[in-house]
Design a binder for these strands. Structure first.
Length: 451
RNA sequence: GGCCCUAUCGUCUAGUGGCCUAGGACACGGGGUUUUCAGCCCUGUAACCUGGGUUCGAAUCCCAGUGGGGUCACCA
């Protein structure tokens, strides 16, 4: 049996990053395309950086995107495994104890001291570090880059494997787990590429079948051209959801940042992506995160939804006083016009506002004539008869009788009713606004523009 | 700075020596539908980083340069 098993291995230091979501998506598709297993592994080996609740938050987010895992592990519950592995490496002469003070690269700047002072001291306690050999070439075939990548070990430093607090570093824990969990493909961020020779050595010394390894491109900020960062860019998947991006749109957008099929197809649901996934489709150069394209995907998926579904998703973005019945009328009017769910308010919020919350806008010199004629006509419609056909009929007659220019007439009406230049078709929105509120808004507009 | 990855329209990309006068999508421009804005339809502008090779032939192969990105912790 050589089933495909992939893993997504975040550390619990906060919310799920958009780049991590993409890594998870690819790892998921890679496994599921071959009917394999997708494993979630929490890499919580740095107690200082751990943020409480992030494991749950990450799981929560993955579920929202339907990236369900088959197995779940937490590294801090597996410390014995790493300790044993480290001690075995020492016994085999591939690692050594070290009692030096921990150094901090950020304080010291670039460092050329690759070999640790304790490299050959044969100490019996302290941290355990990898005994990197000199002048050896280590290499592997990267399945993302589709090429052999190699290093001379003279450029590899004696990395720490087991810390003095008894916890492993990533270099040890990840390798031990990938072996123990029988991971078939390691798919991870590009930032891991430089430390791969360390892992290659550990894999070799520990023995067993080394997984295939692939390093994904970094997603670059469209503005800075640098790797997306928490400080500068909005990077958390949850942030996008909160803004009214749909999970399927975000997923579709992100799957095409760094991967493309032969036929260049762009629209994929998650199951379709899994089905069409091809490991040769990975891109080698770093893509930029351009929000315009995300917006297009989002608009596309919004338009594909039924009004009923959309209404449901819109709930968190809609004014509190908006009743179900009115919303049902409004949803089809905004469906073609919004890019994100949060656009609802700027586009249709006026429908639900009080008269004095709207600042009437006048657009043409004929304003007074337009609005008074409209008011007189609409007052004639009995509230019980207030409907699209009666409104359309009534206003149509006004335009015709007064020889108004249709577009001018409606622009003044629009400005008065909505306080905005852009709205859904006006007659349609007058229905949910209602007879009384419509008349009130028109009268207010007249009052404000009389003098 | 060392090491590593990388280079097709503004952006995401197709392209694996002749199907390329370089294709698609987003964005942008023009037109149509239209009470505004969208949406939809039609349509246009726009790219092979540079220099050397290899070859009858190069976006595709090789080398160099340049540009871009990453990384250099008892963090992941």
């Amino acid at each position: 049996m050589n089933s495909v098993r992939t893993r997504f291995a975040p550390s619990p230091t906060g919310f799920l990053h958009i780049g991590s979501l993409r890594t998870a998506l690819y790892a998921y598709a890679l496994a599921k395309h071959e009917k394999g297993d997708f494993i979630l592994r929490i890499e919580d080996t740095d107690q200082k950086r751990e943020v409480k609740g992030s494991t749950e938050a990450i799981q929560d987010t993955l579920k929202k995107f339907s990236l369900d895992w088959d197995e779940f592990y937490v590294q801090s519950e597996r410390l014995e495994l790493y300790k044993n592995a480290a001690e075995k490496l020492v016994k085999d002469g591939h690692a050594f104890y070290c009692d030096c003070k921990a150094r901090n690269a950020k304080e010291e700047g670039f460092s050329n001291t690759l070999r640790d002072p304790c490299h050959d001291k044969n100490l019996t306690s302290g941290a355990i570090k990898l005994k990197v050999p000199d002048g050896k070439t280590v290499s592997y075939h990267d399945f993302v880059h589709k090429k052999e990548i190699s290093w001379n070990t003279n450029t590899v430093y004696d990395a720490t494997l087991l810390k003095t607090d008894g916890f492993p570093t990533y270099h040890l824990a990840a390798v031990v787990d990938d072996l123990e969990m029988k991971i078939s493909h390691i798919l991870r961020g590009h930032d891991w590429l430089p430390s791969t020779p360390i892992h290659l050595l550990v894999f070799e010394y520990l023995g067993g079948k080394r997984p295939e390894i692939g390093h994904l491109t970094d997603i670059l900020s469209a503005e800075t051209g640098k790797k997306l960062s928490k400080r500068r860019d909005s990077v958390f998947a949850e942030e996008f959801l909160k803004q009214g991006y749909l999970p399927e749109a975000l997923l579709n957008f992100i799957m095409l940042l760094g991967w493309a099929p032969k036929d260049n197809r762009e629209l994929y649901t998650l199951p379709e992506f899994v089905e069409n996934f091809d490991i040769n489709g990975f891109q080698e150069a770093n893509p930029r995160f351009l929000q315009d394209k995300l917006d297009w995907f989002n608009g596309h998926y919004i338009r594909e939804m039924s009004d009923k579904e959309l209404l449901k998703l819109l709930k968190p973005f809609v004014p509190k006083n908006a009743g179900e019945e009115k919303l049902k009328e409004v949803v089809p009017l905004i469906k073609d016009r919004i890019k994100k769910l949060s656009d609802f308010d700027s586009l249709a919020g006026y429908i639900f506002k009080k008269t004095d919350e709207i600042k009437p806008l006048a657009f043409t010199p004929e304003y007074i004539a337009h609005i008074s004629a409209a008011t007189l006509a609409l007052i004639e419609i009995k509230p019980s008869n207030w409907s699209l056909p009666t409104i359309t009929q009534s206003l149509g007659t006004v335009v015709e009788k007064n020889n108004f220019k249709t577009s001018d007439f409606y622009m003044d009406l629009r400005g008065t009713i909505s306080g905005s230049k852009f709205t859904p078709p006006l007659n349609e929105t007058l229905v949910p606004i209602g007879s009384a509120a419509t008349i009130a808004r028109l009268e207010r507009g007249l009052g404000e523009n009389k003098k």
